[in-house]
Each structure stands twice: as C-alpha cells, then as structure tokens.
Amino acid sequence: MLSGSLPITDANQHEHMFRGFEKSIIMGGALLVDFFFLASGTLLSYLLLSDLKKYKSVNLLRKVIIRFLRLTPTYMVVVFFHATVFHRLGSGPLWESVVGRERDRCQANWWTNLLYINNYVNADRMCMITTWYLAADTQLFIVCLLMVYIIGRWPPWGYALVATLSSLSVLIPFFNTWWRREEALFLPFTE
C-alpha cells in the first residue's frame, strides 16, 4: 500500500490518521477545496455585477485573456522545470520512479496545462497532479463569467440558467453514485 510515494509500514496507524473529526479536516483537505471555489465565484460575481452596473457592459474575452496572461507565464516556467531540470536535482531509490514519471508526463502533456484542460484531457497522465486545481478554477472562472453576465443582462434567463445548472450539479453526481453503487462520501479507510 502506498501513501503518496512512500510505503506504508503500519496500515492501522495510517488508517487511524483519518479517524476523528479534527483529523479528517486536515487529512481530508481535498474536500475543503470547495470553499476556495465558492470564494472565487463569489468574488468574481460581485466584481462582475458591479462592473455591469457601473459600465453597462463588460468585455468577457478581455477578462479571460488578462487571467491567462497573469497565470500562464509563471505556470509554464514551473511545467518546463518539471519537464527538463527537476529530475536532475536529486537521486534515491524512488527518485526515478516518481520524479522520472513526472518528467515524462510533463514532456508529453505540457500542452494540456497550457490550455488549462489537464483535468480532462489525459488526466490519467497529468503533469504535476496538483495543478488540476488551476484547470478547474480557470474552467469555473469562464463558466461563472458567462453565468453572471447572463444574470446581469437578462435576469429571468440568468436565474433559470442558475436553477437548471444547480439542479444538474446535484442530480448528476447523485444518479452516478446511485447507479454505480458507490460510497456517497470519500472514505480513505477500508472499513
């Protein structure tokens, strides 16, 4: 059994790390990412509605381009570093199997990171797995821009769109979980 890249010597101790409310908050941090999506969407909605009220029009493409130019240069330097240099900076028994695999993935899939689609395209061979958040946040940024713009310009259609998408965001995971007979919550322990 592996935790990240390190072998687990005592599975009971590892499993104990996830038990209890206070431990689950820290160890289950991936579930807390939803808060950051909520905060990002709330701030974007507020700013976009303020701009629509003040200027009566907003250039959505300009907002996407500004975000792209703000994030992408630094992001691509880090991807380039992982694809070319990082694997040469260390060694060890697991170094090549972990860092070498990361290098290979970054060399093959750097373009999915550039387009912020790495959480959908070749997701099983993702370059820098933690960057799924940047892709998801960028995708939600674009969806939020469109939704808030529609709400600001055509309120009845916008509210209908929000109600429809909100319903689908609950129903699709529910039926997917029910149909596959999966656990409704992420449970990192076996019992």
Rank of each mutant, 00 (worst) to 15 (best):
C144V: 07
S50Q: 15
V79S: 00
E183P: 12
G41Q: 06
N118K: 02
E183A: 14
T177P: 03
I117R: 10
A83Q: 04
Y133E: 04
W132Q: 02
N119V: 03
S169Y: 06
L48G: 03
L134P: 01
R67F: 10
S40D: 12
F86L: 09
C127Y: 04
T164I: 13
E15A: 14
A39T: 12
M1L: 13
L146M: 11
A11I: 15
Y46F: 15
V77D: 05
L44G: 06
T74Q: 08
S3Q: 09
N122A: 13
Q107T: 11
S91D: 10
V99M: 07
W154R: 12
V79R: 03
S169T: 12
P93S: 13
T74A: 14
L140H: 12
L146C: 13
P7L: 02
Y149G: 03
R88G: 13
P156K: 00
V98I: 08
R62P: 03
I66D: 15
K63P: 07
A163R: 07
R181Q: 15
V121C: 04
K53T: 12
Y120C: 06
V77R: 07
G28S: 03
T190F: 04
P155N: 04
G158F: 00
N12M: 10
R70G: 09
L146Q: 05
G152E: 07
T164G: 09
P188V: 01
R153T: 13
F186N: 07
L43H: 11
Y149F: 15
R62C: 12
W95N: 06
L44Y: 04
Y116A: 06
S5I: 13
I65F: 14
P73W: 01
D137H: 10
L145P: 00
P173R: 00
D10Q: 05
A160Y: 10
Y75C: 13
F81G: 03
H87R: 13
T190W: 08
N12G: 10
K63W: 09
L69F: 09
V33P: 04
V99N: 01
P7M: 01
R101L: 14
I8E: 02
T190M: 10
L94N: 11
R153D: 06
L38C: 11
N176L: 13
F81D: 06
L161N: 00
Q107D: 05
I129M: 07
A108M: 13
R105T: 03
T164V: 07
T72H: 10
I150S: 05
V148P: 00
L69Y: 04
C127D: 04
L134F: 09
Q13F: 11
S91G: 12
L165Y: 10
T74D: 04
P188S: 02
I26T: 01
Y55S: 14
L165M: 12
V64H: 10
Y133W: 06
V78L: 14
S169L: 01
D51Q: 14
V85M: 08
N113E: 07
